[in-house]
Amino acid sequence: KRPMNAFMVWSQIERRKIMEQSPDMHNAEISKRLGKRWKLLKDSDKIPFIREAERLRLKHMADYPDYK
């Protein structure tokens, strides 16, 4: 399994928030909203998620050196 990218790290947190506020919302609608919100997010606000994704990528490389 591939490591999460910055969007996936961010969306995992945000998806939980949306599901708590709107438990009846369909997953497809949540995904659309997350995509739009990520695009509107300032680059500076994305930095912590980019760093976490990089950390996960490096850990994945160390844990699975033969992964292609």
Rank of each mutant, 00 (worst) to 15 (best):
Lys1Thr: 05
Arg2Phe: 11
Arg2Gln: 12
Arg2Pro: 03
Arg2Ser: 13
Arg2Met: 11
Arg2His: 06
Arg2Gly: 10
Met4Lys: 02
Asn5Asp: 13
Asn5Tyr: 04
Phe7Ser: 14
Met8Phe: 10
Met8Glu: 15
Met8Trp: 08
Met8Leu: 11
Val9Leu: 14
Val9Cys: 07
Val9Tyr: 03
Trp10Glu: 00
Ser11Leu: 04
Gln12Thr: 09
Gln12Asp: 15
Ile13Gly: 08
Ile13Lys: 09
Ile13Leu: 10
Arg15Ile: 07
Arg15Ser: 06
Arg15Tyr: 05
Arg15Phe: 04
Lys17Asn: 07
Lys17Met: 05
Lys17Gly: 01
Ile18Tyr: 07
Ile18Ser: 02
Ile18Phe: 06
Ile18Gln: 00
Met19Phe: 07
Glu20Gln: 10
Gln21Lys: 08
Ser22Glu: 13
Ser22Val: 07
Ser22Tyr: 14
Ser22Lys: 09
Pro23Trp: 01
Pro23Asn: 03
Met25Thr: 09
His26Gln: 15
Asn27Met: 12
Asn27Lys: 13
Asn27Arg: 11
Ala28Gly: 09
Ala28Met: 06
Ala28Gln: 10
Glu29Leu: 03
Glu29Val: 02
Glu29Pro: 09
Ile30Ala: 03
Ile30Trp: 01
Ser31Asn: 14
Ser31Ala: 15
Ser31Met: 14
Ser31Val: 13
Lys32Cys: 09
Lys32Gly: 05
Lys32Asp: 13
Arg33Phe: 15
Arg33Met: 15
Arg33Leu: 15
Arg33Tyr: 08
Leu34Ala: 01
Gly35Asp: 15
Gly35Val: 15
Gly35Ser: 15
Trp38Asn: 01
Trp38Glu: 01
Trp38Val: 01
Lys39Glu: 14
Lys39Cys: 06
Lys39Gly: 11
Lys39Met: 10
Lys39His: 04
Leu40His: 10
Leu40Trp: 04
Leu40Thr: 14
Leu40Gly: 11
Leu40Arg: 11
Leu40Asn: 14
Leu41Met: 14
Leu41Trp: 00
Lys42Asn: 08
Lys42Leu: 05
Lys42Glu: 09
Lys42His: 04
Asp43Arg: 05
Asp43Ile: 08
Asp45Cys: 02
Lys46Phe: 00
Lys46Ile: 03
Lys46Gly: 00
Ile47Val: 11
Ile47Tyr: 08
Ile47Glu: 15
Pro48Cys: 04
Pro48Tyr: 03
Pro48Val: 06
Phe49Gln: 00
Phe49Val: 01
Phe49Glu: 01
Glu52Asp: 08
Glu52Ile: 09
Glu52Ala: 07
Glu52Asn: 00
Ala53Gln: 00
Glu54Tyr: 02
Arg55Gln: 09
Arg55Cys: 06
Leu56Asn: 08
Leu56Ala: 05
Arg57Ala: 14
Arg57Leu: 06
Leu58Pro: 06
Leu58Ala: 13
Lys59Ala: 12
Lys59Asp: 10
Lys59Pro: 09
Lys59Met: 12
His60Val: 09
His60Trp: 10
Met61Trp: 08
Ala62Pro: 10
Ala62Ile: 09
Ala62Arg: 13
Asp63Trp: 09
Asp63Pro: 10
Asp63Lys: 10
Asp63Glu: 14
Asp63Arg: 10
Tyr64His: 13
Pro65Asp: 15
Pro65Ser: 15
Asp66His: 10
Asp66Thr: 08
Tyr67Arg: 14
Tyr67Ile: 15
Tyr67Glu: 15
Tyr67Ala: 14
Lys68Gly: 12
Lys68Met: 08
Lys68Arg: 12
Lys68Val: 05
